[in-house]
């Protein structure tokens, strides 16, 4: 097809033809967040009562991962202006100029539709509806609405990140149950202390980007108090799978120890001096929170696998 008019005869660089590499599009999907989504969804599937054909299990995980990737890409599409201002995110594909916002939006919407429709057609429509809700919640409720308007942004928005194990569970059972809601609650309650620890030592970044994170709205002291409260709640809910009888006493012991470690790290942040600029305790809490979530779900996975195949 010949292009007529002004752009005929121009060089590709002059009309801004895309130079985006597939790796840039992959980066739009936030692969690190996606790996956590895949892992928690997989655990949800493995500990759910019942079985699913292994191939359909893989398809389910793939759809959940791609749905998560679509959320990430929608987030990067909307937040390109903020990302350009923060050191942590300035090198992302859109602010770095490798992918345009339109390309990112199209990519995200195609992924979202593809993942939801595939999950519904091949697995079940409840899981597809939950996945669609997750994408909508993360992109619209969290990214577009809450993030720039309230310091409770990640408290409420955390629900999106907490849904994958519930989706994994529903892929197997076709239902939502109290057990899967507990898995949701573990991640939901874990999210605020995890992100507020980051917000404490990246306070300036969020300030420059004018994102109302808890430390720069309610103050550092109030944030520290809330970090402890949420850490305690996470530690208690973390033991519920044992107390409710769908995890072994060994899980109970490990989850209790991890919970105590989480609370201890949160208390160290609470005791951190006002003029502490290095903020080592906040950095430690951030790292420990990642370890906590991974270890709790890994233990649930091992526990569930032993219960299913070991007996």
């Amino acid at each position: 097809m010949a292009i007529t008019g002004e752009i005929e005869g121009m060089k590709g660089s002059e009309i801004g033809l895309s130079e985006a590499d597939p790796a840039d599009f992959f980066a739009l999907m936030k692969p690190r967040v996606m790996s956590l989504v895949v892992f928690t969804a997989f655990v949800g599937m493995m500990i759910a009562p019942g079985t699913v054909h292994p191939f359909l299990g893989v398809v389910s995980i793939l759809c959940i991962a791609i749905g998560g990737g679509a959320s990430g890409a929608l987030n990067m599409w909307y937040e390109a202006d903020i990302d350009a201002k923060m050191s942590r995110t300035a090198k992302r594909p859109i602010p770095a100029g490798r992918v345009t916002r339109d390309e990112a939006l199209t990519f995200a919407l195609v992924l979202a539709a593809l993942s939801v429709l595939t999950l519904g057609t091949l697995v079940n429509w409840l899981s597809a509806a939950l996945l669609a809700f997750t994408i909508f919640f993360y992109a619209v409720v969290y990214t577009i609405w809450l993030k720039r308007s309230t310091p409770q942004n990640i408290v409420i928005g955390g629900a999106a990140g907490a849904l994958p194990p519930m989706i994994g569970w529903s892929c197997v059972t076709g239902s939502v149950s109290l057990e899967s809601i507990v898995l949701f609650l573990i991640i939901f309650l874990w999210t605020p202390p995890h992100f507020w620890a980051l917000a404490l030592f990246k306070l300036k970044d969020y300030g420059v980007a004018e994102v109302p994170m808890m430390p720069n709205v309610a103050g550092v002291k109030s944030t520290k108090r809330q970090i402890v409260a949420y850490a305690v709640a996470t530690a208690i809910v973390g033991v519920l799978p044992y107390l409710m009888g769908y995890a072994s006493p060994a899980y109970g012991v490990i989850a209790t120890a991890l919970g105590l470690g989480f609370v201890w790290n949160a208390i160290k942040v609470y005791r951190m001096a006002e003029d502490d600029t290095v903020m080592k305790p906040a950095k430690s809490l951030f790292k420990f929170s990642l370890l906590y979530l991974f270890a709790v779900f890994a233990t649930l996975l091992v526990d569930g696998t032993i219960a299913r195949f070991g007996a």
Binding site: I3, I7, E19, P22
Partner: peptide, 19 residues
């Protein structure tokens, strides 16, 4: 597209995207 001369980078990345 006729009449538009693509740069080497654009050709390379387009090929990778197509693959």
């Amino acid at each position: 597209v006729d009449g538009i001369e693509m740069t080497e980078t654009q050709k390379k990345t387009r090929r990778r995207r197509s693959i």
